[in-house]
Write a protein that binds this DNA or RNA. Structure first.
Lengths: 255, 255
DNA sequence: CGGCACGGCGTACGGCGTACGGCCGCGTTG
DNA sequence: CAACGCGGCCGTACGCCGTACGCCGTGCCG
């Protein structure tokens, strides 16, 4: 299957590229190809048409270059995606936010959501352990700053961040799926739901599954209106932050 | 996009198979192939070797049958995965749990985590909107029961469930990645972390990224010990439940 | 007993990632 | 200034994948 990360991706190779261990060569013909240009082209393709459309052939084509030329700068597709991810992290804002931890965490959540909205392919590409590129490290450092002065242990700080970012990613995935579905079927979520209503009524009867039937119908009716991925994101985010505040209050009380 | 779900997956076809719209034929030769046997074989392969190893050729091979014979019962790979997912949901327990909503939700979270542990391929396969198979519907109905009597609106009930299950999936994914990494590299997480220590110390210095450096080191040192995906799961779950309890208490107070 | 519906499958096509080996032009060296 | 060799570039080819298509043999129904 692959697609998101061949099992054989070599982290060391990705790291070498990410941290620019190689100096730019001036030898040879060189018609201006470079890791940066390749990554930029690849991101453009993935943004516009998704990870499936991102093939090495397409990348070469986009750069007016043979397929195999890409391999001069990038060891393989998996490593290319690694670099794409770190590059995307690099475009995130890292402003100094005024306000308490809750404001800061909420801001971080929204920034990450925006990132996933712009680069939907990241939702599928990150499957394996992230490669510790420079921008990911900077991002991690910045985001830890939001929870640094709350009296949490280092491990707890990491766990809080993991929790919030995990929620963002779940929500983003759900939202992305709705977009995909609308694009593929040509139907909005509400229309799709309505077209499946007869089918649902056949099997998902109030007799057999009372709760699922009622709630599903309610949720379905709201689709396109108030309910949807946005609601799930907002609701979940506030719940998560509420939950974190319990620990924070505890630590503040106990010193 | 594809890989876990070809963009061309046809939900209607999947649904037809899932709800057994076709009656079992008794015409023709028939050497005992069936949707069930195919699905079972496919799940065995995916469990043992991952989604990447699941190819139509492998499935046919495992059943002592030609590759294309599989297509007699299943329209394509995407639909096969759909059916695999619903089948996996079918093996989940749905006991009547005594205790309050928190006990019930916690139980649901752990059951789902166990499911993902047994079928790690599900973490990659569910990308798109789930197909509403019979077992998913039953699962949804069952799980809604855990939050049915808390005074929440229908939409809120759905959101609570989405939040909890999203956290489970995030955590399961993280845990699965650790397993994959250990399997691929032959190193435990702690060993891997240690082997990258020199590299990290070069770039992730206390000067440039003080917080990330300290927390990363702390988290890294704990790997293999107390910290890890299990901790992140437990910590996050309690935070999420704490957050939900705030809403529940609100509703209980306001009627 | 004839027909044919249907399960089973061999072949083939168009895609993918990428290994390999060669070409060619430039910067360096004697 | 000539020769060298290195490195950017890439054409070809291989082994995978999913699956369209058309052919067979079988056993039930009329």
């Amino acid at each position: 299957m692959a697609s998101e990360r061949k099992a054989t991706a070599d982290p060391a190779r990705s790291l070498a590229i990410l941290w620019r261990t190689r100096e730019p060569t001036s030898r040879g013909a060189g018609q201006g190809l470079s890791v940066d240009r390749i990554v930029r082209a690849a991101i453009d393709i993935a943004d516009a048409e998704g990870l499936d459309a991102l093939t090495m052939r397409r990348v070469g084509e986009a750069l007016g270059v043979g397929t195999m030329s890409v391999y001069t700068y990038v060891p393989g597709k998996a490593e290319l995606v690694d670099v794409m991810i770190d590059t995307a992290y690099g475009e995130m804002p890292r402003p100094a936010v005024e306000g308490d931890w809750r404001v800061r965490l909420e801001r971080i959540a929204r920034d990450n959501l925006a990132l996933y909205r712009r680069h939907r392919w990241m939702l599928r590409a990150e499957t394996t352990r992230p490669v510790l590129g420079p921008h990911l490290v900077a991002k991690y450092d910045y985001e830890l700053g939001a929870v640094a002065d709350l009296g949490l242990t280092d491990v707890e700080m990491d766990a809080v961040l993991t929790l919030v970012l995990g929620h963002v990613k779940s929500s983003a995935r759900a939202a992305s799926e709705v977009v995909d579905l609308e694009r593929e079927t040509g139907l909005t979520d509400g229309q799709w739901w309505q077209s499946h209503a007869p089918w649902l009524e056949t099997f998902l009867t109030a007799d057999s599954y009372p709760t699922a039937s009622r709630v599903g119908t309610a949720a379905g009716r709201q689709h396109g209106a108030a309910y949807g991925p946005e609601y799930a994101f907002e609701f979940g985010l506030q719940r998560v932050l509420d939950g974190i505040s319990v620990v924070v209050a505890e630590r503040a009380a106990n010193g």
